[in-house]
C-alpha cells in the first residue's frame, strides 16, 4: 500500500505535558483518514506538526516519501491544503478575493475562483465580505481555500463544526466526491464520530497524545460485535434463560437487555415462557464507531 504521509515516534511537549507522544501514523493514498480523540488527545497538534505550523520535539514524518528533515519537503507542501482549527480569512475581502489571494501566493494568477465557490455553495455571495459571513459560510470558504491549487492532500480540522444539518450533508458529499473523482487524500479530525464514520476509509484513534490504534473501515466493521437489544417483562427471568443458553449479555435495566451473539428466538421465547416472562421486542443493532472508541479509550466521548 502506498502511503502519502507516514510518521515515526513523532512527539511534541508543552512543558511536562506530552501533546503528541511518539505517534506513528500511516495515511494511505486516496483515503479519507479520520483522526478521533477526546479534547487534548493531540489531534490538532499532530495536524499542525504535519502542516509545518509547529515543530516536533522528536521523531520524524514523511510527505509523499520526502522526510521532514529534507529541505525538499517544501516542494511537497505545495501539494497540501488545510483548514486547521478555524478558517483563516481576510474579513474585509469577498470570498472571491480571498481565494484569489491564496491563488496568487501559490503562483496561479489565472486561477478562476468561480468553480471552487460553486463547489462549496458560496457562488452567490457577491460583494459580501468574509467578515459578514455566517460561521458555516466561513467554514465553507475555509474549505475552499484549502482546495486552491488542486492539492493532493487536504487536512480538515473539525470541518463540519458549526454547520447546519444540510451543510453537514453537503460538506460530506463534497469530501466524498473530491476523494472519489480527484483522488484527493483527506485527513480529517472530527468529534462527530457518526458523521466521520460515513466518510472515513481509515481511522486513527488517539488518546493522551498517543496513537492507540490505526484501523481501516473494513477491519473496523468486521471487529464490531453483533448486538440484539431486547425488551422483556422481567429481566431477572431473562438473565436465567440466557445463562442457561450460554449467551453473552448485558442487563440495561428492569425491562431492557442486550445480547452480543446470534441466538434462536424460538428457544429463547420457550425458555422465557417457562419462567412466565414475555419477550416484547427484539432489535438488531450494529456496534458503532462511538462504542468502539469508548472501549479503546474509556470514558465519554468529548472529542
Amino acid at each position: 500500500m502506498e502511503y502519502v504521509i507516514t510518521s515515526s515516534a513523532l512527539s511534541k511537549k508543552y512543558g511536562k505535558h506530552k501533546a503528541v507522544d511518539e505517534a506513528d501514523i500511516n495515511v494511505p493514498s486516496g483515503s479519507v483518514y479520520g483522526i478521533i480523540g477526546k479534547n487534548g488527545a493531540g489531534k490538532t497538534t499532530l495536524m499542525r506538526i504535519l502542516c509545518d505550523l509547529q515543530r516536533a520535539d522528536g521523531g520524524e514524518y514523511t510527505l509523499f516519501g520526502v522526510s521532514s528533515d529534507d529541505k525538499k519537503i517544501k516542494n511537497e507542501r505545495k501539494r497540501i491544503g488545510a483548514m486547521i482549527e478555524k478558517p483563516m480569512l481576510y474579513p474585509d475581502m469577498t470570498a472571491k478575493e480571498n481565494l484569489r489571494i491564496q491563488a496568487e501566493a501559490l503562483g496561479l494568477p489565472s486561477f478562476d475562483p468561480e468553480e471552487l465557490l460553486k463547489l462549496v455553495g458560496l457562488e452567490n455571495t457577491g460583494r459580501k465580505t468574509a467578515g459578514r459571513f455566517s460561521f458555516g459560510m466561513k467554514q465553507r470558504l475555509g474549505i475552499a481555500l484549502a482546495l486552491v491549487g488542486s492539492p493532493d492532500i487536504v487536512f480538515l480540522d473539525e470541518p463540519v463544526n458549526g454547520l447546519d444539518p444540510q451543510g453537514i450533508v453537503e460538506i460530506r458529499e463534497l469530501i466524498l466526491r473530491l476523494n472519489r473523482e480527484q483522488n484527493i487524500t483527506f485527513v480529517i479530525s472530527s468529534h462527530f464520530l457518526d458523521e466521520l464514520s460515513k466518510i472515513a476509509t481509515d481511522y486513527c484513534i488517539m488518546d493522551s497524545g498517543r496513537v492507540v490504534r490505526q484501523i481501516n473501515a473494513n477491519q473496523l466493521q468486521s471487529s464490531f460485535r453483533k448486538c440484539f437489544e431486547l425488551t422483556v417483562t422481567d429481566t431477572k427471568a431473562l438473565s436465567v434463560a440466557l445463562d442457561k443458553m450460554g449467551l453473552p449479555y448485558e442487563i440495561k435495566d428492569e425491562k431492557h437487555a442486550a445480547i452480543y451473539e446470534e441466538f434462536k428466538i424460538s428457544e429463547l421465547v420457550s425458555n422465557l415462557s417457562a419462567s412466565g416472562c414475555e419477550l416484547l421486542t427484539v432489535r438488531e443493532v450494529d456496534e458503532s464507531l462511538e462504542t468502539y472508541f469508548l472501549e479503546l479509550t474509556g470514558g465519554e466521548i468529548n472529542a
Binding site: C51, K74, E76, I80, M88, D92, A105, F155
Partner: peptide
C-alpha cells in the same frame, strides 16, 4: 497584521517559509 495574525498560516501550510 491581517497576514501576520493568522492568514500567513494558509501560506506556511503550502510551503512558504
Amino acid at each position: 497584521s491581517g497576514e501576520f495574525c493568522g492568514c500567513a498560516k494558509n501560506k506556511i501550510i503550502c510551503g512558504s517559509g
